[in-house]
Design a protein around this nucleic acid. Structure first.
Lengths: 219, 219
DNA sequence: CCATACTTACTTACTTGTTAGTAAGTGGAT
DNA sequence: ATCCACTTACTAACAAGTAAGTAAGTATGG
């Protein structure tokens, strides 16, 4: 038998190869976690050796770091230049995201696994997770304040932050349950239900949230 | 500080030693995760070698399994024979638990880390996590049905399960945020807020939830 | 009440496997 | 002629699990 490696197009230009590696690493770290996922497995998926991966990224920690940057970049690209919405629109966007996520198990798993791991002692992604949550909370709290303002509702600062934390929390927590038992937990519906419940607690009489535009049939 | 492993009393009887090991393993797996935590570290905390740990538990997988059993056992013991409450009392209990958890970072971290890891491919605790969530959901859904019944409120089966999932989800998700940023996220208050919001969504006009008896001022 | 037989709780030493990381070289494309 | 993407070949650390031995304890028979 000639070679174990089928005629892999060798000599891929740097930028392209890096993208390949990042995509593979996102898959591996996403399904096994950072500590349990190995450079060798990432390398194999790209058709090179683990030393090849290190040639491009220097260390495993740095690879993780760049995977997270990459994922953020891809996520934002998907919004096609349209800025993250504010006001009620943000909550519609969150529900739509949950609906889309129900068809992207891999991404959800990656996010859940990595976030869970980030709370272990000395994890390299802890800082990132912390600031990410912080920014998200602020975005959501601010959207709540906007809506409350528009409607002349009095919204205590404490309640804005608590509601924001709760919205993020319930989205994450439902993802975990859904990953373990997708037949029983309906990610999209449960998330919509919970977000509406929390919204109504701070913004009495808010109307139901239809999905964001464009997300009806197949993605 | 702690110990430099003083002349460890050797020859500890089986039952006692097993408890020591289980406690140590709960700490190690809780802070580092199962895959990243090593038998050697568990052993060291007890003052024996990793082979000694294997003498008692056979394999790392079995040790994890027994740690989980142990934790459930201890958690239930704490309830001192009093059965898990139903009806509205259950939700008061959940809020009280969140309040107590804010003083038990280690336990919360263990739970969060292990649950996050459990959604990785082929994790030995996946089944356990799945059934645990299933039982919890059923308990909470059933409590909701009880209260709805008492008050003559119509509660769709779907909504009962969605609300139950949401309650569990928000508790877990808030724990993660709190672990990363305890100064910003108030575990007890955010949890209480979210649970009340979800309750009001299915049981209109439910009154606020005071804590379970005994927990009023500073714990 | 003591010796012998056995069990238990380990240790030491090892095997086997896996990991991240390094150093030096190779071969293809410009 | 050189750059550079990569491989081969290695190291050092660490992992779980195994095997064999040893000391401490328990039961038994005389």
């Amino acid at each position: 038998m000639s070679q174990a490696t089928p005629p892999r197009s060798r000599r891929v230009p740097r930028a392209e190869r890096r993208e390949e590696i990042l995509a593979a690493a996102a898959r591996v770290f996403g399904s096994k976690g950072y500590r349990a996922g190995s450079l060798a497995e990432v390398a194999e998926q790209v058709g090179i050796t683990h030393a090849g991966v290190l040639h491009h990224f220097g260390s495993k920690d740095r690879l993780l770091w760049e995977v997270l940057e990459y994922r953020d970049r891809v996520d934002v690209e998907h919004l096609e230049g349209q800025h993250i919405p504010g006001g009620l629109e943000l909550f519609r966007h969150l529900v739509t995201t949950a609906r889309r996520n129900a068809d992207r198990r891999g991404i959800v798993q990656a996010y859940t696994v990595l976030t869970g791991e980030a709370v272990t002692d000395g994890h390299p992604a802890a800082d990132r997770a912390r600031t990410r949550f912080g920014v998200l909370r602020e975005d959501i709290a601010s959207a709540l304040r906007t809506v409350a303002d528009e409607r002349g509702v009095d919204l205590a600062e404490q309640d804005a932050v608590r509601a924001a934390s709760a919205v993020i929390g319930v989205m994450d927590g439902l993802q975990t349950q859904w990953l373990l038992d997708p037949e029983v937990v309906d990610l999209a519906e449960s998330t919509a239900f919970a977000i509406e419940a929390i919204l109504r607690a701070v913004l009495p009489g808010v109307e139901p949230l239809p999905d964001s535009p464009g997300a009806s049939g197949a993605p």
